[in-house]
């Protein structure tokens, strides 16, 4: 019954204090929102907190959802705001966590079984640079590139979620890629 409902119908049902309806919303979007938060923040622990806070915030503001936008757009906006807030807080707490290589060492890295240690180290370094470059992008560029690469959304879907014209989304993705390329070239890392 609940599974056949649209996101918008689920919100209506959840507003009528049916926890199952909101549970279904969480089930549908948690992975994508987690991907967005991970791409935006670059850290698993931060991303987990951000996802949790995103859904709690959404649940607390269910009655404020007016149905003018899609539920997916609404959730993404909350998630992006959560990530930006979290990043701001983290930056005020310490200089920056992006260059914290101790934390980078703790991150999960799945290397191919037959890779040499040198090759593994090289791959790891490369990923660290990519992550740092993405995290250094302006928020409006970072969110589109993360939605494209991590959530694998189409331009049209991103356009609907962010309520932006399709051409603006394409343009932002292009600009994001261009800036990433510049940043990575500055770190003398040949991506290509």
């Amino acid at each position: 019954m609940i599974k056949s409902l649209t996101d918008e119908q689920l919100v209506e049902t959840a507003v009528a204090e049916n926890p199952d309806a909101f549970g279904e919303i969480v089930k549908r979007w948690e992975r994508k929102i987690f991907a967005l938060c991970f791409g935006m923040l670059g850290r698993e622990d931060e991303a987990r907190d951000a996802v949790q806070e995103t859904f709690i915030s959404a649940y607390r503001n269910l009655s404020n959802f007016r149905g003018e936008a899609k539920v997916s757009s609404w959730l993404h906006r909350i998630a992006v705001n959560q990530c930006l807030t979290k990043q701001r807080r983290t930056k005020t707490r310490s200089e920056t966590y992006l260059d914290d290589e101790e934390n980078a060492e703790e991150r999960v890295f799945v290397a191919p079984l037959h890779s040499s240690p040198a090759r593994v180290a090289e791959q790891k370094e490369r990923l660290t640079h990519v992550r740092q470059a993405v995290n250094a992008l302006p928020a409006e560029l970072r969110q589109v590139i993360v939605m494209k690469e991590f959530e694998e959304l189409t331009f049209q879907e991103i356009s609907e979620i962010l309520a932006l014209p399709l051409s603006t989304v394409k343009s932002r993705v292009y600009t994001a890629l261009k800036q990433l390329r510049m940043k990575l070239e500055r770190t003398s890392l040949e991506v290509v």
Partner: peptide, 14 residues
């Protein structure tokens, strides 16, 4: 190349 690199990051870390 960037697309592949970000894809790698996602595949290996996320």
């Amino acid at each position: 190349g960037l697309h592949v690199a970000i894809g790698d990051w996602k595949t290996k870390e996320f």
